[in-house]
Structure formats: C-alpha cells, structure tokens
Simulated assay, not measured.
Amino acid sequence: MSLSNLTRLLLLALIWGTSFMLMRIASPVYGPFLTTFGRASLGAFAIYLFARHRGIEFHWKKNAKTYLIIGLGNTAIPFSLFAWSALHIPSAYMATMNSLAPIFTAVFGFLILGERLSWLRISAFIMGLFGVAVLVGIGPVSVTPLVILGVLAGMGAAVNYGFAAIYTRMHAKEIPSLATAAGSQFAAALALLPFAFPAVPHAIAYGTIQAFISVLILGIVCTGIAYALFFHLISTEGASKAVTVTFLIPATASIWAWLLLNEPITPGIITGIMIVLLATAMSLGIFKLPASLKRTPTNS
C-alpha cells in the first residue's frame, strides 16, 4: 500500500472511530431515528455532490429498488440500531460489534450464494461470538437487560451490513460505487423520515450545540468524506486491503471515547476486542489453516 493510501486508511479509521462517540452524544438528545436521519441526509448530499463532480450518473428510476434495499440494509437499519445501542453501551462495545460485519458477510455468502464455509470461517464465527461474550462479561459496564439488548442491537447492525454486502455484490455490479453510496443514502433518509419526524419537537426544545455538531460531523465527515476515502481505497488498493480498516476502528473508537467521554479502557475491553478482531481476520482469510485441515463441510 502506498504511503498516501496508508495515510488515507489511518484517517478513515480515525473518522469512523469517532462515529460511535458522536452517536453517544447525539442520540440521547435527538433520539436514534432523528440522529440517523440527519446523518443519512447530510451524508447523501455530501456524496451526491462529490459523485456529480466526478460525472457519475445515477439512473434513479432504473436503480431505485437496488438503492432502497441497500439503503435499508447498509444505512437505515444498522445506523438506527447503533444509535439506539449508543444509549446503553460504550463506544468500544459498538465498534467491536461493527467488526463482526465481515463474519456475517461470509455467513450470508453461504446462505444466499451457496458459497462454501470453510472450517476456518466457522471457527471465526464461533470465536467472534465468544469475543462478544468476553467483552460483555468482563467489560466495565454492569450486565443489565438494556446492556444485553444494546449489544444485540450492535450485532444486528453487523448482520445487516453482512446482508447488504452480499446484496450489493449481486445487484449493484453495474452501478458506479459512488452512485450506489449516494443513492442508498437518499433512500435511507426517505425511509427514516416518518420515524424521525415525531422527534423534531423534542429536538427543537432540548437540542444542544454539542448534539447538533455531532450530527453534522456524523453526516458530512463520518459518512460523506469517509465513503469517498473508502471507495478511493477500494479502487486503488482493492477491497481486501481497504477492509483492513475494520481492525483499526475499535482502537480508535476506544481512544476517542476515552479522551472525550471519559469512557474507560479496561483489560476486559482489550481482551474482547482482540478476540473479535482475531475472528474477523480469520473470516477474511488473513490466517490460513494447514492444508490437511482445509476440507469444507458439505451443505447437506
């Protein structure tokens, strides 16, 4: 990877790492749906302007269904789930759940495309769940029903990312990536509008400058600029290298939250994160099994 792209990768990790902290600030004020609507709307316009500058065509009518399904699976549902979980669990927990996305992508590849699941990926799935259990069990937050639900919401977000990745691979091959990004964000914003609108009076009455700035950064920087960086990395270095940003996000999220929200970084958090990241690395094929163990289970 070139030095300039390595710099972009690190910058992307720093940007996406802040998103969990920012949701912790915005969601208690605006609620999960309005926070997510603001993020998706601002992100959509930012990506749209960049895509139009690049001369990208969107073909809205032809691609409407694809934009909608990807928008729901990759933005509206997972962003809302994370925004809700931000009310109950620390940033490090959310970032760790986010790291499970490549594992669930492999699962949906098996369920939808019939791709074989190697023993390594099956082991990765089990190890990922174990890492989550370790994180919750010995982390700094008391295990309460709301904490468990917050963790499950974060895992649900990762499940949606996994489905959206496979659907995008199946149905958006002929659509420019920036068009898919902008179109899906617009679709997500439209889908979220009826859920976000009831929270507007509360936001007007009790909104804070910190929450407002958090949503601005979430939309323009963490979604708009971040997507531009990510797709640049994909186009120049390939998806396998671009996705390594997954391994950096839990650390950057934990550091940002520790610096700005006084969220602790404990041995339990570090242990849980390391187990989940090891599982993710296995799922992505970074670690290989010996040849004698490479048999794959049948689908029967």
Rank of each mutant, 00 (worst) to 15 (best):
L3G: 02
R8P: 00
L10F: 13
L14V: 07
M23D: 01
Y30Q: 07
T36D: 12
R39E: 08
I47F: 04
L49D: 03
R52S: 10
G55P: 11
F58R: 06
W60M: 13
W60K: 11
A64N: 08
K65Q: 08
I69G: 01
I70V: 15
F82T: 01
H88L: 04
S91C: 07
A92E: 01
A92V: 15
M97T: 14
I103R: 09
F108N: 01
R116A: 13
L117V: 02
L120K: 09
L120R: 03
I122C: 05
S123R: 01
V132P: 05
I138W: 08
T144L: 11
P145S: 05
V151T: 15
V151N: 09
L152E: 09
A157W: 02
A158H: 02
A165S: 13
M170C: 04
A179E: 13
A179K: 05
G183T: 11
F186T: 05
F195N: 08
F197K: 11
P198Q: 14
A199T: 12
G207D: 09
I209W: 15
S214R: 03
V215G: 05
I217T: 12
G219H: 04
C222S: 10
I225V: 14
F230S: 07
F231G: 11
L233Y: 02
G238Y: 06
A239R: 03
A239T: 13
K241F: 10
K241E: 10
I249R: 05
S254D: 08
E263V: 10
I269E: 00
I275A: 04
T280M: 09
I286S: 01
P290F: 06
A291Y: 06
S292E: 12
S292A: 14
P297W: 04
N299D: 15
